[in-house]
Amino acid sequence: MGQPPLLCYDKAGKNAAFLREKTRSRHQSPLTPQQAIDTSAPACMTNRVQIKNNKPGRFKMKILYLLLLLPFLGLLWTPLYDRYTPVLFGFPFFYWYQLAWVPVTSILIWIVWKKGHDA
């Protein structure tokens, strides 16, 4: 449930950035710092983010965000893990499988966070 809003949001944000880009080129004026900040944009779309938006890394970012869907798939489909075997350190599969998702989720979020910085 957390996933689709983000993608839509990004898409909308990108469209907005694209529109501004278009308007700007029509007026043939260079981008001043004030325009770059553009107070009508959402606060989360500061100029830094907008510049990032125009890089080709955008598509990679979207793929990365899909990583965040994995915990949902892995944990909400219970038939996947609803059994006792194989046992690990005395823990039935049901328990250790879910516990194992904790570090996996942390690592997935960490990857998206770090790559988000680089992109």
Binding site: L68, P71, L75, Q98
Partner: peptide, 12 residues
Amino acid sequence: PYTIIVYPFIFL
């Protein structure tokens, strides 16, 4: 599972 899937949500 509740307190795991909440984190991707928080992150986004």
